[in-house]
Amino acid sequence: MKRTILFLILSSFFVINACGPKGPSENELLREEVIAVHDEVMPEMGKLKSLERQALEKVDELADQTPTDSTKIQEFKALAYDLNHAHEAMFAWMRQYEPKDGDQSPEELKKYLDEQMVLVSEVNEEMKEALAKADDLLK
């Protein structure tokens, strides 16, 4: 009798542990990493547009004072372009990103998420470079 009770308790323990919640899958962790890269620079989106306006204002201001082919004017135009491009790149990435797994196999999903990590990392880096360039030129 004691063996039967012990057997039932142990069996129940193993069944409960086997059916219990498991940690996040590799793909879930990868998705979280992709979103974390996105979330790192997403708060800077408004700043990109603000700095772009400042750079264009500087172009207008300098155009009144110097020839239009001035190196400084070209630097501020390039900065405005870089800031706008970084802003648009983030929106382009967000439009094409699929937050749902759909009916992809785990292997297909991993490949997709690996590709997304590369893309969002490039956008992240582009935004950081544009912001750093703005910090240097718009002081």
Rank of each mutant, 00 (worst) to 15 (best):
K100M: 06
F7D: 12
F13W: 06
A92Q: 13
V37Q: 11
G46H: 04
L56R: 11
K111M: 11
L119T: 06
G20L: 05
A86P: 00
W93Q: 08
F91C: 00
T4R: 12
L30T: 04
C19W: 04
E57I: 02
L109V: 00
A63W: 07
S25Q: 04
L131W: 01
M42E: 14
V15I: 15
C19L: 13
K110A: 08
K100D: 07
M45I: 06
K110V: 02
E75P: 02
P67E: 12
L83S: 01
S121V: 02
L131T: 00
A63C: 02
L56D: 06
M42D: 07
E108T: 02
P43E: 07
V59M: 01
S50G: 12
A80G: 05
C19N: 10
K49T: 03
L8T: 12
P67G: 13
L51W: 01
E125G: 00
L6G: 03
K139F: 00
L29F: 07
L62E: 07
K77T: 03
S105V: 06
A55F: 01
Q74Y: 01
L8N: 09
P106M: 10
S50V: 10
M94N: 12
D103L: 06
K22V: 03
L109D: 02
A78V: 02
E57P: 04
D135Q: 10
A18G: 15
K77R: 15
N124R: 13
L10A: 13
T66C: 03
L56P: 02
M1I: 07
A134S: 04
R95N: 14
Q54V: 11
V118K: 14
D101I: 05
K133Y: 10
V37E: 03
L113I: 02
D64R: 15
E52V: 00
Y97S: 01
R3S: 10
K139S: 09
D39E: 14
K2R: 12
Q65A: 13
K49A: 01
L10R: 04
S121A: 14
L10D: 00
V118T: 15
E52H: 07
Q96Y: 07
Y112V: 00
A89T: 04
Y81A: 10
K139G: 05
K49D: 11
P99K: 09
F76R: 05
H38W: 09
L137T: 08
